Amino acid sequence: MCEKIKKVNSWLGAVFGEQVVPQFEVNTRTVDILYQLAQSSEARCSDTALLIEDLKQKAAEYQAEGAHLQDVLLQSVGLSSASLSKPVADCLSALVDNAMVLGVRDTSLGSFMPAVNNLTSELLEAEKSNRRLEREFRALRKRLGATLVLRGSLQEDINKTVKAQAVESAKAEEKLLKMDFVTAKANELSNRRERWEAQLVSRNMDKSITHQALVQLSEEVTELKKEIIPLKKKLEPYMDLSPSPSLAQVKIEEAKRELAALDSQLEMNVDFK
């Protein structure tokens, strides 16, 4: 643990340099994390240092090779960079720039052609990939448009459903309030009816004067009146008889007795009820 803390402190000091190292909570977890970061940082620094050394070595090799080629040109052909015209120098500079862009080791045709072929192949692959991406983009844009339309339709349906649900909820609440009122009123009327029935029972009320009994009596009276109508029609022919007063008188008396009997029965029924 102490070795890790020393390693971490050393690494933080190197990272922040002259700046003050921020305070942090020293515990097993933070020390382990910082120790791993320190190891990773040192490994990357070591790899970077090796890469820098390799690049320096290659640069030295290129410089040596360039100096050698310059000596060869100067000794064999008698050409130097100062003796070249501006167009030739520009061409050479462009050739060098192209070689550096293509990443070739020299400016020979054998080095340029494979590099150009590779770039052409990469260009064709990039164009092919670009066309494929354009097709996918068009398909995605079409799907996106359809999705947006569907989303708008669904949102509209949701809004309508929410409004309808709010209306139905208000109606349901109103119905519940009405149902509660009706239930309470029914209970109140039922209690009042029970109290009234108890009062009527306690007062020994005659059931013949109840509403139901009166309705039944009215129906019976109506039936009796219907039975009297044919009898009255039977008496009508005898009202104009004159040749046999005695016989007519007998018939009239019989009819009167029948009528009196019916009236008496009707009165008895009324009194009984």
Rank of each mutant, 00 (worst) to 15 (best):
V15H: 04
Q19I: 06
Q23M: 09
F24R: 06
V31W: 03
I33N: 10
Y35I: 04
Y35M: 05
A38T: 00
A43M: 07
S46L: 09
A49Y: 14
L51D: 12
L51V: 12
E53T: 14
L55P: 01
K56V: 13
Q57C: 07
A60N: 13
A60F: 05
Y62S: 10
Y62F: 09
D71A: 13
L74W: 07
V77K: 14
V88T: 10
A89H: 03
L92Y: 12
A94M: 15
A94Y: 09
A94C: 14
L95D: 05
D106C: 04
M113L: 15
M113Q: 14
P114D: 06
V116I: 15
N117Y: 10
L119F: 08
L123C: 08
E127R: 10
R138E: 15
K142H: 10
R143T: 11
L148D: 06
L148H: 04
V149Y: 04
Q155K: 12
N159Y: 02
Q165M: 11
V167L: 07
A170N: 03
E174P: 00
L176F: 06
L177M: 05
L177Y: 04
T183F: 03
A184D: 08
A184R: 13
A186D: 11
A186G: 02
E188A: 14
N191S: 13
R193M: 11
R195P: 00
D206V: 04
S208A: 05
V215P: 00
S218Q: 09
E219P: 00
E219C: 05
K225I: 02
K226A: 14
K226N: 08
I229E: 10
K232M: 08
K233R: 10
L235A: 09
M239R: 11
L241P: 00
L247K: 07
Q249D: 02
I252T: 09
E253W: 03
E254C: 00
K273W: 09
K273A: 13
